[in-house]
Structures are given as structure tokens and as C-alpha cells.
Amino acid sequence: MQYIKIPLVLAAVLILVIVFRNRQRVELRAGSRVLVLALAAIAIVSIIDPDIPQAIANLLGVTRGTDLLLYLLIVVFVLTSLGLYFRLRDTDQHLRRLVRSLAIDDAIRKDGPPRSDADLGPDSQST
């Protein structure tokens, strides 16, 4: 194994962390859209001329064009999964907020505000 792989892997992990820490930033969201368009363009080009991915694979030292596609697919899959995971986390958080506020409003509508006379002893009508 070449030692260059170690810093490369670390760099990839670091980039992931930075990207997801800042994932709300508008530049990043713009970046992901550009990436999608670029991927679509690559796909169209590859369909029209299958020799192009093969040429790029040779250039990068990957044996076959299909291997290159596989590697790209893995990268896209990991990014997609992480993106969905975080989107789901945010959605869960929103759902919890919504349910919480409904539950509290419901309780207050049924039994009154937290400090109602029913909670207090008969000698302490202080509301």
C-alpha cells in the first residue's frame, strides 16, 4: 500500500465533516446543485460516446471505464445517504417540536394552564 493513501483518506473524511458541518450554507447548496448538473452532463456525454469514460479511466490509472463509474457511484451513494440522514434528523426535530407544541396546547385546553387553582391547596388561591 502506498502511504499517499493515508493522507488522501484523511482528507476525504475531513472534507465530509466540513461539508456537513456547514451544510446549511447557501454556497454549499448551490454547489450540490452544480454537482448534480455536472453528473447529468457526464452521464449524457458517456451515453453518446462510451469511449470518453474509458479515456478518463485510463488517464486516472483506473483499468476500466465501468470501474470508474463504480467508484463514482460509491461516492455519490455515500453523499446521498449522509444527506438523507441529516435531512431526516432535521425533519424528526421539526416533528418533535410540532408534536410538543400540540401536546402542550392540548393539555392546557383540557385542564387549564400549568398554574390552575386545582393544583393548589384550598388555602392558596394565588393566581
Partner: peptide, 23 residues
């Protein structure tokens, strides 16, 4: 205070705290 769905202990504590904060 009733959660219509199960949301976990942390969420339940937070609900109770927010309810009590209304006092």
C-alpha cells in the same frame, strides 16, 4: 401532557420542561 406518538425520553423531558415554563 400526552404525546400522540412515542418520541423518546429526552423529548418527553423537554415537553415537560416547556409546559412547566409556562408557569
Amino acid at each position: 401532557v400526552q404525546h400522540p406518538v412515542n418520541m423518546g425520553a429526552g423529548a418527553a423531558y423537554q415537553t415537560g420542561i416547556e409546559f412547566a415554563l409556562r408557569d
